[in-house]
Design a protein around this nucleic acid. Structure first.
Lengths: 231, 231
DNA sequence: ATAATAAAGTGTTGAATATACACTTATATT
DNA sequence: AATATAAGTGTATATTCAACACTTTATTAT
């Protein structure tokens, strides 16, 4: 390979993952306690350095897989952080990604292995470097995206009830919705498929289960349809 | 400095700028003809390599200043591109930024110096590497942002008329608006300050000049106010 | 001086959408 | 059989969006 750019500086490049989950009641964040310097023993996002043979996206997926055991999850680049002193160890450019995972598919064994823990989104420890800034940005992005695209479903199990979906939206937007209006709005999109089955854990009556019909959604999108939740 | 991360790979990091302008009629894009390899002689975004002593944001501002002579312009990070072979010269991670400039403040002398040229957004040449992808993403972002935040004003001179503003929105969204409804909507936000002065270039009658009142907008924002243009 | 021209500026009405609000139903538990 | 609990349902009002045509102002041409 011809080297055209040899006189320029090179930098360490990292990826950091903001991992969101939903336990049925609250929005949660998966954090690790660092066991290496600098900032050893402090809480941090899961991250890793970019390797020669992988793209940024692949690096993020690799880091996410390592901590969750999950592949094919919703993973989106958030923003890149390039302040000179953001990492006191050495200069590192970091591309932050955020992930939405189905918490019931998460492999709990990995919590111990990586000193990881789920925290409530409203109550998590101070993080190293600029990781707090990253989490704030990820939360804002999640709110925006959840409003205009059906990504909320990424945080729910395959089958879910309308009350569960409403609770999820309420924790994301930190706001209560009227259940009649919410149901009307969501079912009005016609992208939910109803099962005869009921979920009975959270009530005596039980609530019907639904699933998000991705194919139908894609077809609607092609026809200029738009998904917008009022908040 | 202690080096904690010495075993990891380092990468060239670049910034590329998508520079938008508005000439009163059309949305435009500032491009340069590369005079260095690889892809010498082809059209490209203005870019540059990150230096040791600057942040990503500063690098983008430096590159933008070099080509436009402008500082303190609207400049926002768009996305980072990290595919392995995106630059055939060597592996380069690129952070793309987009800028909105007031075309009447642009220094024309710089066009020659950098082989630069303004192109219509609907008719520009094929670009090198992944730069077409970057421009598409920037256009999408501009549409989204212009809908929910008053960034359109960044592309207009300090004083502008309502018809000019409408024309700008029409070129951004590639759609015509009803002038009564547009005026109603925009003036309803109460963030435009009217002058007694008229602009007479584009009509015999002349149109009143306005300016965007940033301070007033900031105050409204703090009170939970929201700027939303329907498209 | 007068007429013609061209873009700026202005209100109202009907349609669609969002919001507010209270009772009934189903089933497990006592 | 009674009670308790969350699921499920409809309507009326307010707000917002979308459609639509004429008047005003000043320049230019006659």
């Amino acid at each position: 390979m011809v080297l055209y750019y040899s006189e320029y500086n090179k930098f360490l490049v990292a990826v950091d993952c903001i991992i969101f989950g939903f336990d049925g009641q609250e929005l949660k964040l998966l954090l690790i306690k660092r066991n290496f310097p600098p900032a050893k023993g402090e809480w941090s996002l899961m991250g890793g350095f970019l390797k020669k043979d992988e793209s940024l996206d692949n690096a993020a997926a690799r880091v996410l897989f390592k901590l969750t055991g999950l592949q094919k999850v919703y993973l989106e680049q958030l923003y890149s952080y390039g302040e000179i002193d953001r990492d006191p160890g050495e200069r590192v450019i970091s591309a932050a990604y955020y992930a939405l995972i189905k918490i019931d598919e998460y492999d709990e064994k990995l919590l111990k292995k990586y000193n990881a823990k789920w925290f409530l989104i409203n109550d998590f420890p101070n993080l190293i470097f600029d990781h707090n800034i990253m989490v704030n940005k990820a939360l804002k992005r999640l709110k925006r995206k959840a409003q205009s695209q059906p990504i909320g479903f990424e945080l729910l199990p395959e089958k879910f009830t309308i009350p569960q979906l409403q609770k999820l939206y309420e924790t994301i937007f930190q706001k209560e919705f009227d259940k009649r209006n919410f149901r009307k709005k969501i079912l009005g999109f016609q992208v939910l498929q109803k099962f005869d089955e009921k979920e009975k854990k959270s009530s005596k009556k039980g609530a019907y289960l639904y699933r998000f019909d991705q194919d139908k959604y894609n077809r609607l999108i092609e026809n200029g349809y738009s998904f917008e939740v009022n908040v």
